[in-house]
Design a protein around this nucleic acid. Structure first.
Lengths: 179, 179
DNA sequence: CCTTTCATGTAACCTGTTACATGATTGG
DNA sequence: CCAATCATGTAACAGGTTACATGAAAGG
């Protein structure tokens, strides 16, 4: 997976500036990149060279000029062809899971404290995802397929964190037995 | 999270060679790195310089000599101190989730085929994780905390894939409504 | 007054990947 | 005979991160 297709996807919904893309990517957990300038502006230059996007410069009074990018027909074709290709398996990068394997090295109070701190962070993240989803779903009145899909994407993340919390409950039980 | 602590953790269970570490890391889904030589051998050199590990060279008849690394007291202290520090939130890198957002661009049969192909891959991965876990749990007779923790780590991965499959069922239903 | 928002871009760096290099032994 | 296992290591590159640079306007 490369960030190019994420950008093409976002542009398939409508024209956006690099600045807009940066915000969308860094605010979303689905687009797992940091959303840093370097990567986004460089990718846009590259996409433009490939003929997958084009841009117009919009001059604004008192605000800096912006480049508004839109997807080209070739870009849309490329996006669709990528969509149809084989998806990779999801990758889980869990710092806590690696720690969990050596938790027996800590004393009982310390490891329980660690678990609680982590569970709290996950709970908070879950709340944030739910809130983001609530706000986003308010915007759409009727529910065309793409809005329902956006909802399903959010639901995936939400269930991911809920699943993690359920697992933490089990882990807690295991640790309690060994206190 | 850096690979150093994963290596320290593995060495905390007993001495291992770079080759052993490479295999353990590439075979496990928890250690999400590729387990390539470059990273592992370099990290070991660095850990040795830091005084967190030490090694002895074991000469073998007809097989190449190997460096057997073990964790030092300072290394163990470092590992424990890392364990006690704040864990990062888990990071989910889902290629399919990004595709899912633009699935309305494909025609109904194509998007259903994509979903099925992906679901099949996830199902297979789930089976592999279960099998790995079954084999690993056979090895241990009694169940000290570290074995139970290893079981819980495996369970986390398994529930992750099961959760994904459940979500795919829901997505399937949504797509059926729009066929 | 200081921070945030808008808006673009570059330099330096770090991490991690693939591929290359060597070479004997064992198993199908 | 070919592939895999054992065992170490390096070179080249791709991908992604942090931090720097500029500069006006609006808001607390």
């Amino acid at each position: 997976m490369t960030i190019q297709y994420a950008i093409l996807g976002l542009l398939s919904r409508g024209p956006l500036s690099g600045y807009d893309l940066k915000k969308l990517i860094s605010d979303s957990s689905v687009f797992y990149w940091s959303g840093n300038n370097n990567q986004i502006y460089r990718t846009l230059v590259q996409l433009d060279q490939d003929g997958w996007v084009q841009y117009t410069v919009e001059l604004q009074a008192s605000l800096p000029a912006k480049k508004v990018y839109s997807i080209t027909e070739r870009g849309l074709a490329e996006l669709k062809s990528w969509l149809g290709s084989s998806p990779e398996l999801p990758e889980l990068r869990s710092d806590f899971l690696i720690r969990a394997a050596w938790l027996d090295l800590l004393d009982p109070t310390e490891r329980m404290a660690l678990l609680d701190r982590y569970a709290e962070d996950v709970r908070l993240q879950l709340l944030m995802e739910k809130e983001k989803n609530r706000r986003a779903s308010l915007k759409v009145g009727d529910h065309p397929l793409n809005a329902r899909l956006a909802g399903m994407v959010a639901e995936n993340l939400i269930s991911f964190y809920e699943n993690e919390l359920a697992w933490l409950q089990k882990l807690r039980a295991v640790l309690m037995e060994n206190e």
